[in-house]
Simulated scan of single mutants.
Amino acid sequence: MDPDTQKEAWDRLYSSQGRPWRGVADISWTGIGPGTRVLDLGCGNGKTSEALLERGCEVTGADFSEAAVESCIRLLGHRAEFVTADCRDLPFPDGSFEAVVAVHVFEHVPAEDLGKAVSEALRVTVPGGRICIRCFAEGDMRSGGRKEDVRNGILYRYFSEDDIRGMFRGEDVISVEHVDEPTRFGTVRRRLECVIGKASF
């Protein structure tokens, strides 16, 4: 799928709804503590960045949607740094962050570019640091039994635990948690919450 098409779709979303997802982000599963230098990769509307700031982290947010970044700057720009950047080509030196948090990011990256995005996340993480991923899982109510689909110009992929382990082969998979959220309609929202330790050698 053409990344420019997706960027336009995300820009439309954030331009029309600066805060399309509200509430407080739960980042307890990441194990990230106060004082950690964190990259919020695909920072979106700033929901995760806000939670990281409340935990006392030093936060940089990056998103390829200019409208998303502008929204974050308006909301949190006095407390964190936000930049427009593509997850496949990040503008940060090697080892810039002790942790990278990617909440619902990798499922929107085209399959042919997924390796680049993973490599970049690893590159900007210090040896021994961690990459924390939340993503849609196989069996999610929105998948319709498919591995991927496109809705409103946006790509969605549904991962298995094996997919995550394959993406980060050679790194330390600290945890992979399957999380199910039943809906009142009898369906289930399903996601994975994964913590990957970057090899220290």
Rank of each mutant, 00 (worst) to 15 (best):
D94K: 12
L192N: 01
L192F: 09
E58S: 13
E54Y: 06
H108T: 07
N152E: 15
I73R: 15
E177V: 12
R189L: 13
R22P: 04
K116V: 03
S71H: 03
F64T: 02
R190G: 04
T84C: 15
A199F: 10
S143N: 11
F159A: 01
P3A: 10
C132N: 12
P91G: 11
S49W: 03
D63C: 06
T30E: 02
C135P: 07
V188G: 04
K116Q: 13
A117Q: 01
C132M: 07
D113E: 14
T30D: 07
A51V: 12
D89P: 02
E120P: 00
G61N: 02
G129M: 01
V24D: 13
T187G: 02
P91I: 09
E8G: 02
A51H: 10
F64G: 00
F168E: 10
R19P: 08
V83D: 00
T48N: 13
W10Y: 15
D163I: 00
D180M: 06
E177N: 12
G186W: 02
H104M: 05
C72I: 00
A67R: 05
S143G: 11
L53S: 08
D40G: 05
R134C: 01
V179E: 08
K198S: 02
R123T: 06
G153N: 11
R130K: 14
E193K: 11
R130H: 07
T48M: 03
P127K: 13
G115P: 05
V101N: 02
G153V: 00
R151L: 05
V173W: 02
C43M: 12
V103G: 05
L75R: 14
A68D: 01
A137S: 04
S200G: 11
R12T: 09
W10F: 15
V24Q: 14
G128Y: 03
G115V: 03
I131E: 01
S160C: 10
F64Y: 15
A121C: 09
P20T: 08
D4R: 15
I133M: 08
G77R: 04
E8R: 15
R74K: 14
I164F: 00
A102I: 05
Q17D: 12
A102K: 03
I196H: 06
F64K: 06
R74L: 13
D86A: 09
I73L: 11
H78D: 15
C43Q: 07
D113R: 10
T187C: 06
R184C: 01
R142V: 05
M167Q: 02
P34G: 07
T48S: 04
Y156F: 15
K198V: 09
L75N: 03
R184E: 15
F168A: 04
C72E: 01
T84M: 07
P3S: 12
S71I: 01
V38G: 03
G129K: 00
D172M: 03
Y156C: 03
R184W: 08
C43N: 08
M141K: 13
V195A: 10
E107A: 09
G170S: 14
V69Y: 02
F82K: 01
R190A: 08
G33T: 13
A51D: 08
E120K: 11
I73D: 00
K47W: 02
A99I: 03
G95M: 06
V69K: 04
E81V: 12
D4K: 13
K116P: 00
R134K: 14
K47A: 04
D4Q: 15
